[in-house]
Design a protein around this nucleic acid. Structure first.
Lengths: 135, 135
DNA sequence: AAAATTAATGCGACAAAGGTACAATAATAA
DNA sequence: TTATTATTGTACCTTTGTCGCATTAATTTT
């Protein structure tokens, strides 16, 4: 009757990788962690499933890649509310920032469903590296 | 000595398409307007050039496509400042919204270069269509 | 506990977005 | 007008992501 989802080992593995990560991951990152243990299609399918279940955020980077991150601080129900993410232009790391995002009012007639904000810049590590080089 | 850029007919055509458009365009949209008159690689190269010159915004849609829009209201010099874009989940239209975006403060040590915000929802036309259907 | 059911996986093939090398073409400078 | 070189077109390639289908493995049922 109801198509119940199964909690398989592959799903657990993907979830572990996500929760161990301190930043959002793209497929390439998963590939490194998995070293051929899992098929590309499976990884994408699982991640898509997690997104549908509302336990993972999907982040479109300006580099054309899609990043995935565990939804850590979202209260149940407001998963679809505004997200704020940061991407370091040097080390390419993407991470979720738990600050409420203030979305300005839209022109008349526009109805917002979701908002998503990506700030790019330098993360502390890379910024220090650059500062040290310039000395 | 200096590699000066040339103002070719193809560039002019792309610019015309951009300035005639009321919303941001993806490659597919250009293709329709061009109907085989120009090669894919050329279109991408020209758009990339415009982005480097700071006269076009590049917008990463959550659908994996990249959208391009003329930078209309940006003062010279602040082209890289915060952008706010809206994407209709029904008709897929993407457009720039000229509202200042309030970016919340980042955690200590993070240095912002650029911020980019994409609000998704229904545009007025699609919203009305849905409302009329529900009557 | 074994058999039956069906969700999930692996595989291969494929589609779309976008980039690259290089020869041919066309703006610009001389 | 000729020479120079940025730009274009062509063909090919890479990367991201999806799809169908046979096989595998969680569950459920007996």
């Amino acid at each position: 009757m109801d198509k119940r989802k199964r909690n398989t080992k592959t799903k657990q593995l993907i979830k572990t990788i996500l929760s161990d990560a301190s930043s959002a991951l793209c497929y390439e990152d998963f590939e490194k962690h998995l070293s051929g243990k899992m098929d590309k299609a499976t990884v994408y399918r699982i991640l898509q499933g997690f997104c549908e279940d509302g336990i993972v955020h999907k982040i479109a980077g300006e580099n054309g890649k899609t990043y995935y991150a565990l939804c850590r601080h979202c209260q149940t129900g407001n998963h679809n509310d505004s997200h704020l993410h940061f991407r370091c232009v040097k080390c390419q790391t993407v991470l979720c920032i738990d600050e409420p995002l203030v979305v300005p009012s839209l022109p008349l007639g526009y109805k917002m469903i979701d908002a998503y904000c990506l700030v790019s810049g330098h993360c502390p590590d890379c910024f220090n590296e650059i500062a040290n080089h310039e000395q």
